[in-house]
Simulated scan of single mutants.
Amino acid sequence: MSAGGGTKAIIAALGANLAIAVAKFVAFLFTGSSSMLAESVHSLADSGNQALLLLGDRRSKRRENRKHPFGYGRERYFYAFVVAVVLFTIGAAFSLYEGVEKIMHPHNVESPIWAFAVLVFAIAAESFSFRTAIVESNAIRGTTSWLNFIRRAKAPELPVVLLEDFGALVGLVFALFGVTMAVVTGNGVWDGVGTLMIGILLAIIAVILAVETKSLLIGESATPEIEEKICAALEGSPEVTKVIHLRTLHLGPEELLVAAKIAVEHDDTAADVAKGIDEAERRIREAVPIARVIYLEPDLYRTTKATT
């Protein structure tokens, strides 16, 4: 996976979530807390999600063929979308069900020390995973705000891991709140309230991920900054007088299709035009290395004069 894919962040999150899932389930067996059960399923779902992201990266590296002439780069978008679906159907739906069930049929939390110990351990482990995702993201985020980074990133893995880890940390706080209130008040309804809060949080994160990855899956253009670089590279070629129109499409996080109609001089020979196109393609790839597929159509630029 490329630097933009955040392999280190995914592996860190996978290891943390597997360990946390086991610890939370053990705590559930000792306490009977629905918040702990919801958090166990949450961590297990997150572990499966990280495995899906790694699988998507591996499958995206397959070579192009006759059926898929532009390769399999969008596999990463597909598996990121599947992650959003899994987070909603397994994580959110299960937590919402358990929360409602526990509120309707409450029971006291047994051996709460187990729940508190596991939650503290889980918060520490998730904090490490979240910090790794932040460090990996900062390496490519630059001065972009976190909101814009999540919305505009073309590699889906880091935004997914960031939101998952953020949701996991907040979910742990909700679980700690529910268990603490249930123990202090002696009313098991609070445990169900904490579980319900976890479910609502996961549903919100799942919807955000689904919306963003759906946009990538359908097909997004390059950022305005990248398109400006492409136009500058084209118009910097001596044989190109103007970019008439430009279209870009991400075939994958690090694969960009560029299609442009360019204006050439009317007295250029075919050899001059061919040479100019070759030079323009070279300049584009130099300015934007991810521009892997380039189609340039030469034309004569005509201005329409207004008639009186």
Rank of each mutant, 00 (worst) to 15 (best):
A260W: 13
G219T: 05
A232F: 02
A259G: 05
A270W: 04
G236Q: 10
G252M: 06
K242T: 05
L216R: 08
H245T: 08
L246A: 08
L217H: 02
E281G: 03
D278M: 09
L217R: 03
A260V: 09
E235V: 08
D272I: 01
V273H: 01
V288N: 07
P238V: 05
T223L: 14
L257E: 14
L217M: 13
I226W: 08
I230D: 01
H250Y: 14
T269I: 03
L251R: 09
S237K: 03
K229Q: 15
L217A: 08
R282W: 02
H266L: 05
R247N: 11
H250Q: 07
L217D: 06
L249K: 09
E255N: 12
S237Y: 02
R283I: 00
L246G: 04
E239R: 09
C231L: 12
I277T: 09
I230A: 01
T241A: 12
H245R: 11
S215P: 02
E265P: 01
G276K: 05
I277P: 11
A280G: 00
E225S: 11
E227Q: 12
I226M: 12
R247W: 07
E265A: 14
L234K: 07
H266K: 11
V288G: 09
P238D: 14
I262W: 03
A280Q: 01
A263R: 03
G236S: 10
E281W: 04
T223S: 15
I230W: 01
A271D: 14
I226S: 11
T241C: 07
E281V: 12
R247S: 07
E286Q: 15
E220R: 13
T269L: 05
E235S: 08
T241E: 15
H245K: 10
I230T: 01
K275A: 14
E227W: 01
R283G: 00
A271R: 13
S221G: 12
P253R: 00
I230F: 00
K261D: 14
K214S: 15
H245Y: 12
R247C: 00
E279Q: 14
D272K: 13
D278G: 13
A222E: 08
A260R: 12
K275T: 12
G252T: 05
R283D: 06
P238R: 10
K275W: 02
L251C: 04
P253C: 01
A271I: 08
V273N: 01
L257K: 08
T269K: 03
G219R: 05
T241D: 14
G219F: 06
E254Q: 10
R285G: 04
A259M: 13
G276Y: 07
A280I: 00
V264Y: 04
S237D: 15
G236Y: 11
V258R: 02
V264T: 10
